[in-house]
Design a protein around this nucleic acid. Structure first.
Length: 410
DNA sequence: AAGACGGGGAG
DNA sequence: CTCCCAGTCTT
């Protein structure tokens, strides 16, 4: 690669950026904390999605110290709906580290920044270059696409080794004293001009020396192996209407501290077999819930289906409605069950009633209290619409819950 | 090297 | 539908 073509790229791209750059909230100043927060939020997340979250987050946690001092649930709540929630926990852990080890000042030190939780090669480079104007590469998906095209590189960008190679090129392109602007220019070009599907080459400031375009390969590049499709999981979920002191409320539970949607709230659900009738699925769910909580629930019908696709799992949820079955005799409620009329549905319902009866006896013997009055495990809770504001729900459950309350209102 | 980890917007 | 987005961490 000749020096001219690189020189041309750097000069033209930088000039272009300074002319057309977007006025984004995190570009108001170079406060390293503001840059840091923005870069974490922008991981795998579009600019337009991030903007409102960023504004709210910075208003609520304006400094490293305030973020470090906040209760973790408040930070998580600020992240509600953004996804990849470990980002929020890691960001706060990083803030606490900065307070404890660096007196609340984000250090102008590559090694120190890179060691913060949730800060990988891209983010450390972004912080060092944008906040401190250090000549570090900040290679994200945009940059890999732009440079793959400009230099006509056919390496698979899904491979970790490819990013390392592109980082080397990226460093060599940084103009003296302009690391921050140049790195942002690279990403701005990828976002506005050199887009994945149909790049707008005719408006590109560096098109005349773009090797990918000159080879007619701009739409084939970058090369990237396809991701595997997410595995499917059928889940039976239930929204349980409380009664008595819990009237108007529903039962929710908090997920474990580790793993998918860690620490977030949800309504009860259970992984079930791909086959199975409504009554059988609801029955499994009811039994499982009884084991966990001691509660005896009575499914009353199917509420809705909800599909939710994560990057690695596809949840197909069948969502049932239930109330707290008081006595066993009422278990075969007449109108409610959708499978009513089908012989197998009735059979399963009968089975459920019998089991519930047995369970009731066990539970009553063990606790000498009505199951519905028994103390819930700590991670279960009855909540109304207002209490929802305190708890953090993934969007999937938020949508269903809101729809449930909208329907039950009239 | 491969999988876990959210959610949404664009074509 | 498919792709993929200002990625990181764990195995």
């Amino acid at each position: 690669m000749t020096v001219d073509v690189k020189q041309f790229f750097s000069t033209e791209l930088l000039a272009w950026y300074r002319l057309v750059k977007r006025d984004l909230p995190w570009r108001k100043n170079r406060d390293p904390y503001r840059v840091w927060v923005s870069e974490i939020m922008l991981q795998q997340t579009r600019v337009d999605t991030v903007i409102p979250y960023y504004e709210r987050f910075m208003a609520k946690f304006p400094t490293v110290r305030e973020l470090a001092a906040a209760p973790e649930e408040e930070v998580l709540k600020s992240w509600e709906g953004l996804g990849y929630y470990s980002r929020a926990r890691n960001l706060q852990a990083g803030a606490r580290e900065v307070v404890e080890r660096y007196g609340g000042i984000v250090p102008d030190d590559k090694t120190a920044v890179a060691s913060l939780k949730g800060v990988g090669p891209y983010t450390s480079g972004a912080i060092m270059s944008i906040a401190f104007n250090r000549p570090e590469p900040a290679v994200d998906g945009n940059v890999m696409r732009v440079l793959s095209r400009y230099f006509c590189l056919e390496d698979d960008i899904a491979k970790p080794s490819t990013r390392v190679g592109i980082e080397k090129r990226a460093v060599s392109l940084i103009p003296e004293g302009a690391a921050g602007d140049f790195n942002q220019a690279l990403m701005e070009l990828g976002a506005l001009v050199c887009t994945p599907k149909s790049p707008v080459c005719l408006t590109c400031p560096v098109m005349e020396h773009c090797a990918g375009r000159l080879a007619g390969k701009e739409t084939e590049l970058p090369v990237k192996t396809k991701a595997k499709p997410p595995r499917e999981e059928l889940r039976a979920a239930v929204i349980i209407a409380g009664s008595g002191e819990h009237a108007g409320k529903v039962l929710v539970r908090q997920r474990p501290a580790k793993g998918l949607l860690a620490q977030m709230w949800e309504f009860p659900h259970l992984l079930v077999d791909e086959h199975g009738e409504d009554a059988a699925l609801a029955d499994k769910l009811a039994r499982s819930l009884h084991e966990e909580t001691g509660l005896l629930i009575r499914p009353t019908g199917r509420l809705m289906d909800a599909d939710h696709v994560f990057s690695h799992i596809h949840w197909k949820m069948k969502i049932y409605e239930a109330d707290l079955g008081a006595a066993v005799t009422g278990a075969g409620s007449e109108k409610a069950w959708p499978a009513a009329g089908s012989a197998s549905g009735r059979a399963a319902q009968t089975l459920y009633a019998a089991e519930a009866s047995a369970a009731y006896e066990d539970s009553a013997a063990a606790s000498s209290a009505a199951p519905s009055r028994a103390k819930l495990p700590a991670h279960y809770r009855w909540i109304g619409r207002e209490e929802m504001e305190q708890l953090t729900f993934p969007n999937l459950f938020l949508r269903v819950l809101n729809q449930y309350w909208a329907n039950s209102k009239r």
